[in-house]
Amino acid sequence: MLDADFFRRWMTATAASVDREADRLTALDSPIGDADHGSNLRRGFTAVAAALDEEAPDTPGAVLLLAAKQLISKVGGASGPLYGTLLRRTGKALGDAPEVSEEEFARALREGVEAVMALGGAAPGDKTMIDALLPAVDALGDSFAAARTAAEQGALATTPLQAHKGRASYLGERSIGHQDPGATSSSLLITALAEAHGE
């Protein structure tokens, strides 16, 4: 069973990973976006870690709802609403339970990913965070490690794609050959999830 401590570890591990990888995320964002993806997410997840230290929510859902609130209020551009929606919808799906099963979490995370797809209008293959998140959710039924691998492969697979959503879509064919920064940061989120689970 997964408790609030597990979800705090997930968010804290994500914050540390985003902090380490912020410059790389911004470098990926530079040719096809606003060159601020890394710095925006670093600001947001630093705020998430600080808020969790301060408030210590006691249910899995409450941890994710608090994280979502921070991301929506602190992160500029599209990333804040998209990541905030992912975590908020997942947290709401988990409800007030003090512990959730891995299967319940997988179902809740799928709801979160579907909410992101609805908000951004993105589908698999559009060269967005969905290209990492959806394969990860599909693989989560096997293991957390499988989800991490699927997310990493999904992020890498965005490189030859042409962007059809988001800022990169304005570039048309010039978006081809660049790994999507949103898919890459989503891969960091899922990698941190596997780390929190000890995989």
Rank of each mutant, 00 (worst) to 15 (best):
L2D: 12
L2V: 13
D3P: 01
A4D: 14
F7S: 02
R8G: 02
R8D: 09
R8A: 14
R9V: 02
W10P: 03
W10E: 06
T12G: 00
A13K: 14
T14M: 11
T14S: 11
A16L: 10
S17H: 08
V18L: 15
D19I: 01
A22L: 07
A22S: 14
R24P: 00
T26W: 01
L28Y: 03
D29H: 05
D29A: 04
D29Y: 03
D29M: 03
G33Y: 02
G33N: 03
D34Y: 04
D34E: 13
D34S: 04
D34H: 04
D34Q: 03
A35R: 13
H37M: 08
S39D: 06
N40R: 04
N40G: 12
L41R: 08
R42G: 02
G44A: 06
F45P: 01
V48N: 13
V48D: 12
V48F: 12
A49S: 14
A50N: 11
A50D: 15
A51L: 08
D53L: 07
E55V: 14
A56I: 08
P57W: 10
P57V: 11
D58N: 13
P60G: 04
G61N: 07
G61T: 06
L64Y: 12
L64V: 13
L65W: 01
A68C: 05
L71G: 05
S73C: 03
V75P: 01
G76E: 10
A78F: 02
S79I: 10
G80P: 03
P81L: 06
L82A: 09
L82R: 08
L82G: 05
T85Y: 11
R88V: 01
R88P: 00
R88E: 15
R89Q: 15
T90N: 10
T90F: 08
K92R: 13
L94Q: 11
D96C: 00
P98W: 09
P98G: 11
P98Q: 10
E99D: 12
V100P: 00
V100H: 02
S101E: 04
E104P: 00
E104D: 13
A106K: 05
A108F: 06
A115R: 01
V116T: 12
A118P: 00
A118W: 00
G120K: 07
G120P: 03
A122K: 03
A122F: 09
T128G: 10
T128Y: 09
M129L: 15
D131R: 06
A132Y: 02
P135N: 13
A136G: 13
A139M: 05
G141N: 11
D142P: 00
F144W: 15
A145P: 02
T149Y: 00
T149H: 11
A150H: 09
A150P: 04
E152R: 15
G154T: 09
G154N: 06
A157D: 15
T158C: 07
L161C: 05
L161V: 05
K165S: 09
K165W: 06
G166T: 05
G166I: 07
G166K: 02
A168K: 04
S169W: 12
S169R: 14
S169E: 11
Y170W: 14
Y170A: 14
Y170I: 06
Y170V: 10
R174A: 14
R174E: 10
S175P: 01
I176L: 02
H178P: 08
H178Y: 12
D180S: 13
D180G: 12
P181I: 10
G182C: 13
S186D: 11
L188K: 08
A194R: 09
E195C: 00
A196M: 09
A196S: 14
A196I: 07
G198Y: 05
G198C: 04
E199P: 00
